[in-house]
């Protein structure tokens, strides 16, 4: 597969950068995550895909 073909893929070529590891466990965008959790608590998943919750 040449570069042109790689660039046409929907799945991108991703360069692994270990310096980003520090963000993995940081509560980034936490306000949005909290809002999502609040909404998901009441709305859940689409009807055919309900699953058990991971945490209370």
């Amino acid at each position: 597969m040449n570069i042109e073909e790689l660039n046409k893929r929907k799945t991108p070529v991703v360069v692994i950068d270990d310096s980003l590891e520090k963000y993995k466990d940081l509560p980034l965008f936490q306000e949005k995550v909290d809002k999502a959790n609040e909404m998901l608590r009441t709305v859940g998943l689409p009807k055919a895909n309900k699953k058990k919750t991971r945490r209370a």
Binding site: L40, T53, A56
Partner: peptide, 15 residues
């Protein structure tokens, strides 16, 4: 960032 939520296998996408 794709963050875990309280629902298993459900991730919040934010940027």
């Amino acid at each position: 960032k794709f963050s875990e939520t309280n629902l298993k296998d459900l991730y919040n996408l934010a940027f």
